Amino acid sequence: SHFELRVGTITLHFDNISEELAEELEKLAKNGVHADEIRRWWEEWLK
């Protein structure tokens, strides 16, 4: 499923992401983690 995450002024787009993972990314964003860090985390997870 597709997921969009708003982090400050940036909107990150994720394809084929589980609800659980989407929730984890939302938690990171709410805790003030920068969009670049979240994207890096996601790319690492995909490997």
Rank of each mutant, 00 (worst) to 15 (best):
S1L: 15
S1N: 15
S1V: 11
S1G: 15
S1C: 13
S1T: 10
S1D: 15
S1K: 14
S1A: 09
S1E: 15
H2D: 14
H2L: 01
H2V: 02
H2R: 05
H2F: 04
H2E: 08
H2A: 04
H2P: 02
F3L: 15
F3W: 13
F3A: 01
F3K: 03
F3T: 02
F3D: 02
F3Q: 01
F3Y: 05
E4R: 01
E4T: 00
E4S: 00
E4D: 03
E4V: 03
E4M: 01
E4K: 01
E4G: 00
E4Y: 02
E4I: 03
L5G: 02
L5I: 14
L5N: 01
L5Q: 02
L5F: 01
L5W: 01
L5P: 02
L5Y: 01
L5A: 02
L5C: 03
L5R: 00
L5E: 02
R6P: 07
R6F: 04
R6T: 15
R6D: 10
R6S: 15
R6L: 15
R6V: 15
R6C: 11
R6Q: 15
R6I: 15
V7Y: 03
V7A: 03
V7L: 07
V7H: 01
V7C: 04
V7F: 05
V7E: 01
G8K: 01
G8M: 02
G8L: 05
G8Y: 04
G8H: 02
G8W: 03
G8S: 01
G8Q: 02
T9I: 09
T9F: 08
T9W: 02
T9A: 14
T9S: 14
T9N: 15
T9V: 08
T9E: 15
T9G: 14
T9M: 09
I10H: 05
I10M: 03
I10N: 03
I10T: 12
I10K: 03
I10P: 00
I10L: 06
I10A: 05
I10D: 10
I10Y: 01
I10V: 13
T11C: 05
T11F: 06
T11R: 02
T11Q: 03
T11A: 03
T11E: 04
T11L: 07
T11I: 14
T11Y: 05
T11P: 00
T11H: 05
L12Y: 04
L12H: 01
L12Q: 00
L12F: 06
L12D: 00
L12V: 04
L12W: 01
L12M: 09
L12E: 01
L12A: 00
L12T: 00
L12P: 00
L12S: 00
H13I: 13
H13R: 06
H13M: 08
H13P: 01
H13W: 09
H13V: 13
H13E: 06
H13Y: 12
H13N: 05
H13S: 06
F14H: 00
F14V: 02
F14N: 00
F14W: 05
F14C: 04
F14I: 05
D15P: 07
D15M: 08
D15R: 04
D15F: 12
D15E: 10
D15V: 08
D15S: 08
D15G: 08
D15A: 06
D15L: 09
N16Y: 10
N16H: 06
N16G: 07
N16W: 07
N16D: 09
N16M: 06
N16R: 02
N16A: 05
N16V: 05
N16P: 04
N16S: 07
N16I: 03
N16T: 05
N16E: 05
I17A: 04
I17T: 03
I17S: 01
I17C: 03
I17R: 00
I17G: 01
I17H: 00
I17P: 03
S18E: 04
S18C: 04
S18I: 04
S18R: 04
S18F: 04
S18L: 04
S18D: 07
S18Y: 03
S18G: 08
S18A: 06
E19N: 13
E19I: 14
E19W: 14
E20M: 07
E20T: 12
E20I: 11
E20V: 08
E20S: 11
E20W: 08
E20C: 07
E20G: 11
E20Q: 14
E20H: 10
L21E: 09
L21Y: 04
L21P: 01
L21M: 14
L21C: 04
L21I: 14
L21H: 06
L21T: 11
L21K: 05
L21V: 13
A22Y: 11
A22F: 14
A22M: 15
A22R: 14
A22N: 02
A22L: 07
A22I: 14
A22V: 12
A22S: 07
A22W: 10
A22G: 06
E23V: 12
E23F: 12
E23N: 13
E23Y: 12
E23I: 15
E23C: 03
E23D: 12
E23K: 14
E24I: 12
E24V: 10
E24P: 01
E24Q: 13
E24Y: 14
E24R: 13
E24L: 11
E24H: 12
E24A: 11
E24G: 06
E24F: 13
E24S: 11
E24N: 08
L25A: 04
L25W: 02
L25P: 00
L25V: 05
L25S: 00
E26S: 14
E26V: 14
E26L: 15
E26Y: 08
E26Q: 13
E26C: 07
E26I: 15
E26M: 14
E26P: 01
K27M: 12
K27R: 11
K27L: 11
K27N: 12
K27E: 12
K27C: 10
K27W: 10
K27P: 00
K27A: 13
K27S: 11
L28W: 10
L28I: 06
L28R: 05
L28V: 04
L28C: 06
L28P: 00
L28N: 02
L28F: 14
L28M: 15
L28A: 07
L28D: 01
L28Q: 10
A29P: 02
A29S: 06
A29N: 05
A29G: 04
A29D: 02
A29K: 07
A29F: 04
A29C: 04
K30R: 09
K30Q: 13
K30D: 10
K30W: 05
K30F: 08
K30S: 14
K30N: 12
K30H: 12
K30Y: 08
N31T: 13
N31A: 13
N31E: 12
N31K: 12
N31F: 07
N31P: 06
N31R: 14
N31S: 12
N31D: 09
N31M: 12
N31I: 10
G32R: 04
G32C: 06
G32M: 09
G32S: 06
G32N: 08
G32V: 08
G32E: 06
G32Y: 04
G32A: 09
G32P: 04
G32F: 06
V33N: 10
V33W: 13
V33A: 14
V33R: 12
V33P: 04
V33D: 05
V33L: 15
V33Y: 15
H34D: 12
H34Y: 06
H34N: 13
H34V: 11
H34Q: 13
H34K: 13
H34L: 12
H34S: 15
H34E: 14
A35R: 02
A35H: 06
A35T: 04
A35E: 07
A35L: 09
A35S: 07
A35K: 03
A35V: 14
A35M: 05
A35N: 03
A35Q: 06
A35W: 07
D36R: 07
D36Q: 13
D36M: 06
D36K: 07
D36G: 08
D36P: 06
E37R: 06
E37P: 03
E37M: 11
E37V: 11
E37C: 07
E37I: 09
E37H: 10
I38G: 01
I38L: 07
I38C: 03
I38A: 03
I38D: 01
I38Y: 02
I38T: 02
I38Q: 01
R39M: 15
R39N: 09
R39I: 15
R39E: 12
R39Y: 13
R39F: 14
R39W: 15
R39S: 11
R39Q: 12
R39K: 11
R40S: 10
R40M: 13
R40I: 10
R40Q: 11
R40V: 05
R40F: 09
R40L: 11
R40G: 08
R40N: 12
W41C: 06
W41T: 12
W41P: 00
W41I: 14
W42V: 10
W42R: 02
W42N: 02
W42P: 01
W42H: 10
W42Q: 03
W42K: 01
W42Y: 15
W42A: 13
W42I: 08
W42C: 08
W42L: 08
W42D: 00
E43T: 08
E43N: 10
E43A: 08
E43M: 09
E43W: 08
E43G: 05
E43R: 09
E43L: 10
E44M: 10
E44W: 09
E44H: 11
E44A: 11
E44L: 07
E44G: 05
E44Q: 10
E44C: 03
E44F: 05
E44Y: 09
W45D: 03
W45K: 10
W45S: 09
W45R: 09
W45A: 09
W45I: 09
W45L: 08
W45P: 00
W45G: 04
W45E: 06
W45M: 10
L46C: 08
L46I: 10
L46D: 07
L46T: 09
L46S: 09
L46W: 09
L46N: 11
L46K: 11
L46R: 07
K47S: 12
K47M: 12
K47N: 12
K47D: 07
K47W: 06
K47H: 15
K47F: 06
K47Q: 14
K47L: 08
K47V: 13
